[in-house]
Design a protein around this nucleic acid. Structure first.
Length: 221
DNA sequence: CTCCCGATAT
DNA sequence: ATATCAGGAG
């Protein structure tokens, strides 16, 4: 596990690598953001943006999603995976927004998490990006990067990873850190071919060093 | 835990 | 061919 100084080194290095990291889901308001993040489960941002471009042109308000049939909505988001459950969740979510929140998106993590298709991670993203609530959403990238670097333990659950990050990162840096870790995971410390040889964090990364040793060993065979 | 699931990179 | 992608619900 990394100590305080090493974690500081990680945060500073990621800031240098990705100074402008921010939410890459294209949206113009909190409602569009909720839909976009809900759609982004197990799917790349690039594809989500491709779909929401036409989707948001057709559906502006919660009412719009309820005026078409479920099948039509499914077809409009079909190129995204998991489209049947996502279409159902969007409709449930829109119903609740209209019935309980006057058509507006709630601005607390607790309220957001109650919405259909909105779990811990999505609630954190929306609260943080749309409403400036300090939060660290732990997605696949944040989890992988935290575990590889040794910020948390391999066996930790996503909730434990989130708790650890909130404890070890100053609150005023939560939002930026969250986005930088995603960029770091998406473009550098990738799931498949992490760029360990050129990684400025290799000096403190046990997983990276392990991978380098393994590569060296295979080269000798 | 399993299921949902198409697009893309490797 | 297979792993992976800003996960969540049952």
């Amino acid at each position: 596990m990394l100590n305080k100084k090493q974690i500081r080194f990680c945060l500073d290095t990621m800031e240098r690598m990705f100074p402008d990291a921010e939410c890459e889901l294209v949206h113009e308001n909190p409602f569009e953001l909720v839909i976009a993040v809900l759609l982004s489960a197990q799917c790349t941002d690039v594809l989500v943006n491709k779909v929401t471009k036409s989707l948001f042109a057709k559906y502006k308000k919660p009412e719009d999603y309820l005026e078409v049939t479920l099948e039509e909505l499914e077809q409009d988001i079909r190129s995204i995976g998991l489209y049947r459950s996502k279409a159902k969740n969007i409709r449930k979510l829109c119903q609740v927004l209209l019935e309980q929140y006057d058509g507006e998106v709630p601005n607390t993590i607790e309220e957001l998490e109650k919405l259909a298709g909105v779990g811990r991670k999505t609630a954190n993203v929306v609260a943080s990006v749309a409403f400036g609530v300090p939060a660290i959403a732990v997605d696949t990238h944040v989890e992988r990067v935290s575990k590889r670097l040794g910020i948390c333990r391999w066996k930790d659950s996503v909730l434990e990873v989130e708790k650890t990050l909130m404890k070890k990162v100053p609150e005023e840096e939560w939002s930026d850190t969250h986005h930088r870790m995603i960029f770091f995971g998406r473009y550098h410390c990738k799931a498949r071919n992490p760029e360990c040889p050129e990684c400025p964090l290799l000096v403190i990364c046990r997983e990276g060093q392990k991978r380098m040793r393994k590569e060296e060993k295979e080269r000798q065979v």
